[in-house]
C-alpha cells in the first residue's frame, strides 16, 4: 500500500513537469489524459471492484459540469463550484445507487446508461438555469496568459487524479475493498458472510461518482463552454470501461495505464481519421475486446462468477 502510494506521488511529480514544456498541445493532451485517468479509476470502484457494469460515468460527468457551471453563474468562486460539483455527484450517486444497485447484469447496465439520457433531457429543458440546447458559457479565470490558464487546469486535473488514486489505494486495502471483492466474486455468499452488500455497493457507486463530478466541473471551467450533448456523451462511459479493460482491473495502476494507452491510440486515430474518428474508435474497441488478451483476460477472470455470471 505504501509502495503504491509512493509510486503514485512520484509519478505525479514527474507529470508536474509537463507544464514546463510550455507547449499548448502537450498541455491539452496531458490534461485530457489526467481526466481520462479520473474516469477510469472512478469506474473501477463500481465496475472493477464490485463487478457491476455501470454506464453512469457520463451522467456524473455531465452533472458535475453543469453543477459547476451553474454554481459559477450564481457567483460561487470557481474552486467552491468544483466542490459543489463533487458534492452533487456524490449525493446523486448515493441516491441513484440505492435505487439502481438492486438490478443486475444488463438491467443495471441499461438503467445506468439511461440515466445520462434523462439528465441530458432535463438539462436541455431547464433553459433558464442551464441555457438548454444553447449551452452555457463559463467565466474565464482571472489568469492573464492563456499559458498560465492551461497550466492551472493541468495541475487541477493532476491533483484530482492523485486524489482519486489515493482513494483507490486506500479502498483496495480496506475493509470496503475486501467486501467489494467478495461481492464481485459471489454476492449472495458475501451477504451470508455478513457483508452489508447494499451499503458496500452504494459506497462503491458513490466513490465512482464523486471524482467524476469534480472532473466534469474542472473540464467545464477549462473549456469555458458546455452543452448537453458534449458532457452527457455516453462515449465517456464507454471510454472509461475500455480504458480499464485495456489496463486490466487487477491493479491500482491498471486504470491509469489504460487511460494513457487509450489516449495515445485515440490521439493517433483523431489526427489521421478526422471524419470517421468515432468509427475508427469503434474498430479499436472491437479489436480490444476481441483480441487483446492481457487487459481483457485479466478482467474476464476477475468477473467469472461461480455460476450464472452472465445473468
Amino acid at each position: 500500500m505504501k509502495r503504491a502510494l509512493l509510486i503514485g506521488v512520484l509519478l505525479s511529480g514527474v507529470l508536474a513537469l509537463v507544464p514546463l514544456t510550455n507547449d499548448a498541445y502537450w498541455l491539452r493532451l496531458g490534461t485530457t489524459m489526467l481526466m481520462y485517468g479520473v474516469l477510469a479509476l472512478s469506474w473501477n470502484f463500481i465496475g472493477g471492484m464490485a463487478g457491476y457494469p455501470s454506464f453512469a460515468v457520463a451522467a456524473f460527468l455531465g452533472l458535475g459540469a453543469y453543477t459547476g457551471a451553474v454554481a459559477q453563474k450564481f457567483g460561487l468562486p470557481m474552486g467552491w463550484a468544483w466542490v459543489a460539483a463533487g458534492l452533487s455527484a456524490l449525493l446523486f450517486a448515493t441516491l441513484l445507487g440505492a435505487a439502481l444497485l438492486r438490478l443486475r447484469g444488463h438491467y443495471f447496465a441499461i438503467a445506468s446508461l439511461v440515466v445520462a439520457e434523462v439528465l441530458r433531457e432535463l438539462v436541455n429543458s431547464a433553459t433558464e438555469l442551464t441555457g438548454g440546447g444553447m449551452g452555457l458559457n463559463l467565466p474565464v479565470p482571472s489568469m492573464i496568459s492563456v499559458q498560465a490558464q492551461a497550466s492551472f487546469f493541468f495541475y487541477a486535473m493532476l491533483a484530482l487524479v492523485l486524489l482519486t488514486f489515493v482513494a483507490t489505494v486506500i479502498t483496495t486495502h480496506s475493509r470496503l475493498g475486501f467486501g467489494l471483492r467478495c461481492i464481485q466474486q459471489n454476492e449472495a455468499a458475501a451477504d451470508m458472510l455478513g457483508v452489508n452488500t447494499t451499503a458496500f455497493k452504494i459506497a462503491a457507486f458513490a466513490l465512482s461518482g464523486v471524482f467524476v463530478g469534480i472532473a466534469g466541473a474542472i473540464y467545464a471551467s477549462w473549456v469555458h463552454y458546455i452543452e448537453p450533448p458534449d458532457v452527457f456523451d455516453v462515449l465517456y462511459s464507454v471510454k472509461a470501461i475500455v480504458m480499464v479493460l485495456l489496463g486490466g482491473a487487477g491493479s491500482v495502476f491498471g486504470p491509469l495505464l489504460g487511460a494513457a494507452a487509450f489516449l495515445t491510440l485515440e490521439e493517433l486515430v483523431w489526427r489521421k481519421f478526422l471524419e470517421v474518428h468515432t468509427g475508427v474508435l469503434g474498430l479499436l474497441i472491437v479489436l480490444l475486446v476481441m483480441f487483446l488478451p492481457r487487459g481483457v483476460l485479466s478482467i474476464t477472470q476477475l468477473w467469472k462468477r461461480p455460476k450464472d455470471h452472465r445473468a
Binding site: S174, R175, F178, G179, R181, C182, Q185, N186, A188, A189, A190, M192, L193, G194, V195, Q301, L302, K304, P306
Partner: peptide, 28 residues
C-alpha cells in the same frame, strides 16, 4: 450451503478471513 459457495478466485485464507471480519467482527 448445500451447494458450496466459495469466492473462487480469492485465496482459501481470504475466504475465511472475510467471514471472520464481516460476521465475526474481527479487525481487517
Amino acid at each position: 450451503f448445500q451447494i458450496v459457495q466459495p469466492f473462487p478466485e480469492m485465496r482459501v485464507l481470504e475466504n475465511v478471513a472475510a467471514a471472520a471480519m464481516f460476521a465475526g467482527g474481527l479487525a481487517h
